[in-house]
Design a binder for these strands. Structure first.
Lengths: 226, 226
DNA sequence: GTCATGCTTCGGTGAGCGCCGAACTGTTCC
DNA sequence: GGAACAGTTCGGCGCTCACCGAAGCATGAC
């Protein structure tokens, strides 16, 4: 009885355009200030403050004071996965190849909560699959023995010993699965470490550096013409 | 720009208690009439009609006319997965062992969209894991060679040849993963076929028949004290 | 034909909430 | 100290939307 009401209450929090915009802006896992989120939601700081209060109250966001700023981020993995679920449904069917702000950059490479998406993310998943490093299906995926060794050598080591699974995440611009879960996160993390990719201000798009162009080509055979 | 608005619009559809109740009632994959859904949402048929119209319009529900009834069901797997995502977040933390309508029956065994959940679902996942038939992790899972053979012999055969993955689905009453995805669906389907479990009216709870008591014990070593 | 039933449409009411301007607290910097 | 800035709280406006009663279509039973 009390159960669906909690569902409704949670969903209602996502059901406001301003809040949805703010949450989408946080999907790359960064922590943003209230002002930045107000900008992302296209609303004034006063209004944003109310929304952020509700989202925090509802357990969707965690907040950390730092000087005169307040940094908001998604409160847990579950929040990111919930948003993924809604996005997977809500996104327009085939890649509507038009007009977002910086759409082209977003489609080339972007972060999706804690892992890589866009053409780069899909290409990485394809490359690893083609080489037998991971096996992916619609219901899940697994890193092979060879894949574990490869990731190890690449510097994106995972806890050894136990079997390593990975979760596919449906990519809304390519409509193809890419690597999420611990594996995707470790891979993305290592790419940042190597300086192959770099975050950009005010967007989830990531830039592929010249080192990255070279690295992705050498290690994965990936060349993104775009 | 248009993107998060779609997310918000979709989430807003889930964000009404009456609609959330109706969707929750459809989570077991059955098709229900408008009247039954009005009852599930605790609203009058007029109001339910509006809600059902919006949900259908939004692509969440599919409807089929049959005589003077209209049967509504979830429109796609994506809808079920989206709801799962929201539920996984929104459910109260530990098993709040109290007071739902038929709570005890629901906790023992119920359907979760197209597969089994509750103690039975978790016990099945545990049994299959313990025997090395499936391997489960937080990011996914896989059916082993032996598991494929076992499922085959059990009558819950899956398309052969390709690797079979399965998706864990976090159980909100037990807080333990159980089997979802194709594997979970095939398993549940076979249990219904064998007459081990039976659907009940007006609830997602399923009854374990006496044949089921015997079968689950013999095949899986599962005894649910009730 | 008449009646019952399932469902939808219409009209009007009321509550909730998203929004912003203005004012207030707290931090940083000079 | 004072000025600048980040963020919140308050008050009031306006819109949206969930709700139900009543009426209107269908379909099926007799």
């Amino acid at each position: 009885m009390t159960e669906p009401n909690r569902i409704a209450a949670t969903a209602a929090l996502l059901g406001d355009p301003a809040r949805a915009n703010m949450l989408a802006a946080l999907m790359d896992g960064r922590a943003l200030t209230a002002k930045e989120l107000a900008y992302a939601g296209h609303i004034t700081p006063q209004t944003a403050s109310e929304h952020l209060g509700k989202l925090t109250e509802g357990g969707l966001l965690a907040v950390k004071k730092q000087g005169r700023h307040r940094y908001y981020r998604l409160a847990s993995l579950l929040v990111g996965q919930m948003l993924e679920g809604v996005m997977a449904f809500a996104e327009p069917e085939p890649a509507r190849a038009t007009t977002w702000r910086g759409g082209e950059a977003l489609r080339t490479a972007r972060t999706c909560y804690d892992h890589l998406a866009g053409r780069l993310g899909v290409a990485l998943a394809d490359a690893l699959t083609a080489r037998g490093h991971v096996a992916l299906g619609t219901d899940g995926g697994e890193v092979t023995e060879a894949g574990t060794q490869f990731l190890d050598a690449f510097g994106a080591a995972l806890a050894p010993g136990r079997r390593v699974f990975c979760r596919p995440c449906l990519d809304w611009s390519e409509r193809r699965p890419h690597l999420a879960g611990r594996v995707g996160a470790a891979l993305a993390c290592r790419c940042f470490e190597l300086g192959w990719i770099a975050r950009q201000r005010d967007t989830r798009a990531v830039a592929i550096t010249t080192a990255g162009q070279e690295g992705f080509r050498a290690q994965f055979g990936i060349v993104l013409g775009g």
